[in-house]
Simulated assay, not measured.
Amino acid sequence: MSRPARRGRPADRRAHIGRLGEDAAADHARSLGWVVLVRNWRNRYGELDLIAADGTTLVVVEVKTRAGRTFDDPVMAVTPAKLSRMRRLTRMWLAEQERRWERIRFDVVAVRLDAHEPEDPGGVRITHHRGVHE
């Protein structure tokens, strides 16, 4: 009978880990001098994790977070289909905006958290992949 409760736990943990990663990615963007415009913009077609301004460049960031001991880079989870969806969603977001951008860049920020203490800021490792699809 405890099966449903167990199923809920990993999803809750996964959502929590995702939020921690997105917070770390937003902090990383700000540390680069970027202005974070939107976090978690969504519509019925999907979600954009982070939209920021790097001067006159709009940067759309996919955040991939892992809290485990695997050694693969979380960027490996960003497929060509995901990049295509990001482009489509970005066009939709831009259609709602008044400002125009000189350049648009798509980045992936891979966040690794300590498996045992994911909330420990000292255990955060960020790998920033710039221009994965321009």
Results as ranks from 00 to 15, higher is better:
residue 59 V to W: 09
residue 49 D to L: 02
residue 55 G to I: 00
residue 40 N to V: 08
residue 33 G to W: 02
residue 47 E to M: 14
residue 67 A to T: 12
residue 3 R to G: 08
residue 36 V to A: 09
residue 107 D to E: 14
residue 109 V to K: 00
residue 49 D to R: 03
residue 13 R to W: 06
residue 115 A to G: 08
residue 62 E to L: 02
residue 106 F to Q: 11
residue 54 D to I: 03
residue 80 P to G: 06
residue 41 W to V: 07
residue 44 R to Y: 07
residue 59 V to T: 14
residue 77 A to H: 11
residue 14 R to F: 09
residue 127 T to V: 14
residue 14 R to V: 07
residue 122 G to V: 05
residue 65 T to R: 05
residue 60 V to A: 03
residue 18 G to H: 04
residue 98 E to M: 07
residue 107 D to V: 05
residue 42 R to F: 15
residue 45 Y to W: 10
residue 63 V to G: 01
residue 96 E to M: 04
residue 46 G to P: 03
residue 12 D to M: 11
residue 118 P to K: 01
residue 134 E to I: 06
residue 89 L to I: 01
residue 22 E to Y: 11
residue 116 H to G: 09
residue 119 E to N: 14
residue 122 G to A: 12
residue 114 D to R: 00
residue 18 G to W: 01
residue 99 R to Q: 15
residue 2 S to M: 07
residue 45 Y to V: 02
residue 73 D to S: 05
residue 6 R to H: 12
residue 106 F to V: 06
residue 125 R to L: 15
residue 84 S to I: 06
residue 29 A to S: 09
residue 62 E to D: 13
residue 108 V to H: 00
residue 118 P to Y: 01
residue 36 V to G: 09
residue 79 T to K: 08
residue 96 E to Y: 00
residue 107 D to M: 04
residue 115 A to W: 12
residue 51 I to E: 00
residue 27 D to Q: 14
residue 12 D to L: 13
residue 1 M to G: 11
residue 85 R to E: 15
residue 19 R to K: 13
residue 69 R to K: 11
residue 66 R to N: 09
residue 127 T to E: 11
residue 36 V to K: 08
residue 126 I to Q: 04
residue 70 T to S: 13
residue 96 E to G: 03
residue 65 T to Q: 08
residue 11 A to T: 15
residue 72 D to V: 13
residue 51 I to Q: 00
residue 106 F to N: 05
residue 45 Y to T: 03
residue 2 S to L: 08
residue 116 H to R: 14
residue 120 D to A: 12
residue 15 A to F: 13
residue 65 T to M: 05
residue 76 M to H: 13
residue 63 V to W: 01
residue 50 L to T: 02
residue 124 V to M: 02
residue 18 G to N: 05
residue 34 W to F: 08
residue 15 A to G: 10
residue 96 E to Q: 08
residue 35 V to D: 14
residue 97 Q to S: 11
residue 131 G to E: 14
residue 85 R to V: 03
residue 45 Y to L: 07
residue 5 A to Q: 13
residue 33 G to I: 04
residue 36 V to D: 08
residue 79 T to F: 03
residue 15 A to L: 13
residue 128 H to Y: 06
residue 133 H to N: 11
residue 43 N to I: 08
residue 46 G to L: 04
residue 86 M to A: 15
residue 115 A to S: 15
residue 81 A to R: 11
residue 114 D to G: 00
residue 6 R to L: 10
residue 50 L to R: 01
residue 25 A to I: 03
residue 132 V to P: 12
residue 52 A to M: 00
residue 8 G to L: 15
residue 79 T to D: 06
residue 77 A to T: 12
residue 35 V to E: 14
residue 119 E to A: 14
residue 83 L to W: 05
residue 4 P to M: 00
